[in-house]
Amino acid sequence: MPEKIIIKRRSEEDINIRLKDKLDLNLIPIFSAVMQRRNITKAAQVLGMSQPAVSNAISKLKKTFGDPLFVRQGRGIEPTLRAFQLEAEFRQALFLIHNVFPPAHFEPFKSSRTFTLVLQSPLDTLFFTKIYQYICHHAPGIRLNVRSSESSYTQDGNHVDFTISYEPVTGENIFNQLLFEDEMVCVAKKTWGQNLSLMTESAFYRARHAVVSLKNSGSFSAIWYDTPLKRSAIVHQGQCLFSLLEVVSRTNLVAIMPTWITRRWHNGPEVIHLTLPLPVKKRACYLTGYTTNLDDPGFRWMLDTLTRICQKP
């Protein structure tokens, strides 16, 4: 059983005195970045520092507190108990520092910072090109690391800065922002779908369905198939909505998908879309940010950029 970590919250005055006596305040953001990324190289990329400089900073902290702070595990590093205790104190200290000192000005055109984004399918197809082209033009030194799979911001030691998906994320140091609501339709082969134009909810689930695999993390289709009876309608489970369009255009299966997909990839005259006879006809799309400091100018710039680019299709 994991050792229980007990953290005693200190007063602001106590923290100020201890930090002033023992610590270079510039080391705190470095420590925080390493704690989040669980990787020296990735922390250095985010901080815009060299790897040796970050390693040197962590070495100073080790000497100051008489603890290794991080131990190697697999390809990354894991914090010690003392590191977790310090993180709680440093989080409060960072709050105090950010209230005393204004954040540095962020210049996107000169920045070499790395941002990791998770764009849930099918939103990756909709937004990746726009985001990539904007960054290339306005901030060519910034490196984008983009994935289309769902991922916790600490999973496998990999830090995620932003997620765009159909589900809000809850937890500490997480910021959610509603982008828009996506309208859903039922898609069917034209010759078959004409017989379904006035179907009820019960009739809908008596038809045969194609869905995005329910085994996928964050499956787009899962919310409409939350009971055994509804899941019994599933005949085909694909990996993405675009493959479902191809399947639907050649079979008597139906599928649920956003209206914008049917407008852009409608498979010619073979596919039609019908009003969805279900209570849930829309999916909210969220932009989620992961940060210990909402005043970080780089984070705010990327947040504003993504909000502006990722508008309702």
Rank of each mutant, 00 (worst) to 15 (best):
D156A: 10
D182S: 14
M184I: 10
C186P: 09
I223Y: 09
A233V: 08
G171V: 03
V254A: 06
Q239A: 14
V71I: 07
A203C: 02
P168H: 12
A57H: 04
N99P: 01
V254S: 00
P108G: 01
A88T: 12
L196R: 06
T291R: 06
S151L: 08
A53Y: 04
D124P: 02
F115T: 07
L198S: 11
H138R: 05
V187E: 14
V235E: 14
E150V: 07
G218M: 08
H236Q: 15
V46E: 15
L274G: 11
Y286T: 05
E150Y: 09
G298P: 05
P313A: 02
F90M: 04
L61T: 02
R9H: 14
L25G: 01
C186H: 05
T129Q: 10
E183Q: 11
N252W: 00
K189V: 14
W224F: 15
L61F: 02
K60P: 02
V34T: 00
P228N: 14
N252T: 07
S213Y: 03
A139I: 03
T191E: 15
W192D: 15
K130N: 13
E183S: 12
Y132H: 13
S55E: 13
N176Y: 03
K60R: 13
W224P: 02
K130E: 09
T191D: 15
M49I: 12
K312N: 09
H273N: 13
R10D: 13
N16K: 12
Y205N: 04
Y134N: 10
I58R: 00
H138I: 00
